[in-house]
């Protein structure tokens, strides 16, 4: 019996090592290269540790690429679309969790269904519609923040509403009833009781909406111009050029990744809650 469990421990250790290597090797390569001079990266001599260590890439990347501007563009677009979608989603999710109304289940199914359609299906018509609006009203939607913000906030909505609704349903109705008997209005109930109690869920939803916008490439590649390019587009188009300062590209990739990675890891348990909220009956 004891030998059997030792064997089990060894097998487990072996597989854990394999898994960890598979995950970590690309990450290690990314970090290592960001601290190397370009000629070491492009040398064919295999080296596990950096041959020469330098911070230079982290300094130079700000001038090789308009990285600061990409950052600002991404922050503005992701930040505003997240804020707006949260406000809209709170209202809709509250209505879903507390009221019965005609077409409720249809609306619910529809909201979820939009999740599974390919983005490509929407991109073309949205581009055509934005061009049309631009021609007729003069409101610039292609190549500005506005078009991207509207698109991202709408795309964040289905998941946000779905997840927040699950969250609101965990809040006992009796609290709200008591407040309403004391003369609190419906809006008062929402802002004073429901929202404060749902703050962790709201933060989690906000993080996911932000990450989606931060990481989005398809729409950004069509709906941005040279002056509104987001990080995703800026780095992606740089990566596919013929001459690339790979150490700087790795350094900027790390700079872009670390904040969102931390944010994701902090809220990942809510992610599963949001998904399985639909699985449990």
């Amino acid at each position: 019996m004891k030998r059997k469990s030792q064997l089990q421990t060894l097998t487990r250790a072996f597989f854990l090592t394999l898994y960890t290597l598979f995950v970590v090797v690309p990450l290690y390569e990314m970090v290592k290269s960001s601290f190397e001079p370009l000629r070491d990266i492009e040398s064919t001599q295999f080296h596990f540790l950096p041959l020469h260590f330098s911070w230079k890439a982290y300094r130079d990347m700000w001038t090789t690429l308009p990285l600061a501007r990409y950052f600002i563009d991404s922050l503005v677009v992701s930040g505003i679309s997240t804020l707006l979608s949260i406000v809209v989603a709170i209202c809709a999710a509250y209505a879903f969790s507390r009221f019965r109304f005609p077409g409720k289940s249809f609306f619910g199914v529809m909201i979820l269904a939009t999740q599974i359609f390919p983005g490509m299906l929407f991109l073309l018509p949205i581009f055509v519609m934005f061009t049309q609006i631009q021609d007729n009203t003069g409101i610039q939607l292609n190549g500005t923040y506005l078009g991207l913000v509207i698109t991202y906030m709408t795309f964040a909505l289905p998941f946000a509403i779905w997840m927040m609704r699950g969250y609101f349903e965990t809040i006992p109705l009796s609290l709200e009833e008591a407040a309403m008997i004391d003369g609190c209005s419906r809006i008062g109930v929402l802002t004073r009781i429901v929202i404060p109690l749902a703050i962790p869920g709201i933060i989690a939803v906000a993080v996911f909406a932000f990450l989606n916008a931060w990481n989005e490439v398809l729409f950004a590649s069509v709906l941005t111009s040279d002056t509104t390019q987001t990080l995703a587009i800026g780095l992606q188009s740089y990566a596919t050029q013929t001459v690339v300062e790979w150490n700087q590209l790795m350094a900027s990739s790390i700079t872009v990744t670390v904040p969102v990675m931390v944010a994701f890891l902090l809220v990942q348990k809510y992610f599963l809650f949001g998904l399985t909220g639909g699985v449990k009956e």
Binding site: N215, A232, Q236, A239, T257, M261, F264
Partner: peptide, 18 residues
């Protein structure tokens, strides 16, 4: 194990291109 999933997809693409 969660790290690859926490990364932006475009960064995953860039790293694997590399």
């Amino acid at each position: 194990f969660l790290l690859p999933y926490a990364m932006p997809v475009f960064v995953v693409g860039i790293v694997w291109r590399f």
